[in-house]
Write a protein that binds this DNA or RNA. Structure first.
Lengths: 110, 110
DNA sequence: TGTAAATACTTTTTCAGCAAAAGTATTGTT
DNA sequence: AACAATACTTTTGCTGAAAAAGTATTTACA
């Protein structure tokens, strides 16, 4: 991934995580997979980026987490979006759409 | 402008500056005005962001500059895009479109 | 059965883009 | 005369994310 693309992605991982959690509870590793699959391998979220986002969203009360056993010793930490998080998501999506629309206007592409 | 929108804009100012210069030579202050007008006041580039971008593009050989008198003591420093810059712009635009398309897919919006 | 790949999560370091802010000076407007 | 707009410059600080390295479990397969 190029330096430019890293910049263009900035801030969107948080938006996209919330979006995915709108549909169902997911655990960390599953989220990285979803990014990869849905984007056709174009959008990657590294673990070092994803987990801090999840921790931050938890602390802010936008999402909550719970642990489910997976195997004998392994656990999966699922994340669940709260109502507060849904409100925040809607707000953030609006801001994203406003900016991309402004960029589209400056580029004057249809 | 919200913190989120600041993030969503990241890297796009450089792309948009090059885009504006594709049509005509412009000087710094004029570029900040163009961002404002074209985006309907939504996308602002502060001078502290714009000028470093222009200097960097000059150093990289993507654009060149020349000074034109404006009044008795004032000058305007115009920026002109070079062929190398047009190539870089096309590349950068492709990267921008690829990422926004990937985001659109993850958001699964039409 | 052993070992490599995939799954699952964590932490640390580093860096680039940009807002914010403050400064300098000229020109136009009222 | 005073204020707003024009024109450019420099400094400081913040933040998101890449990169990288680490730990451990489970599955696939040779």
């Amino acid at each position: 991934m190029s330096q430019n693309q890293d910049n263009f992605k900035r801030g969107t991982a948080e938006l996209l995580v919330l979006h995915l959690l709108m549909k169902e509870d997911l655990y960390g590793y599953q989220i990285t997979q979803a990014f990869d699959e849905k984007s056709g391998g174009v959008y990657t979220v590294l673990e070092g980026s994803l987990y801090p986002i999840l921790y931050k969203l938890c602390e802010a009360g936008y999402i909550t987490d719970y642990v489910v056993p997976a195997g004998k010793k392994r656990t999966r930490r699922y994340y669940h979006i709260e109502e507060k998080g849904r409100v925040y998501y809607a707000e953030m999506l609006g801001e994203y759409l406003d900016i991309t629309e402004a960029i589209r206007k400056i580029l004057d592409t249809p």
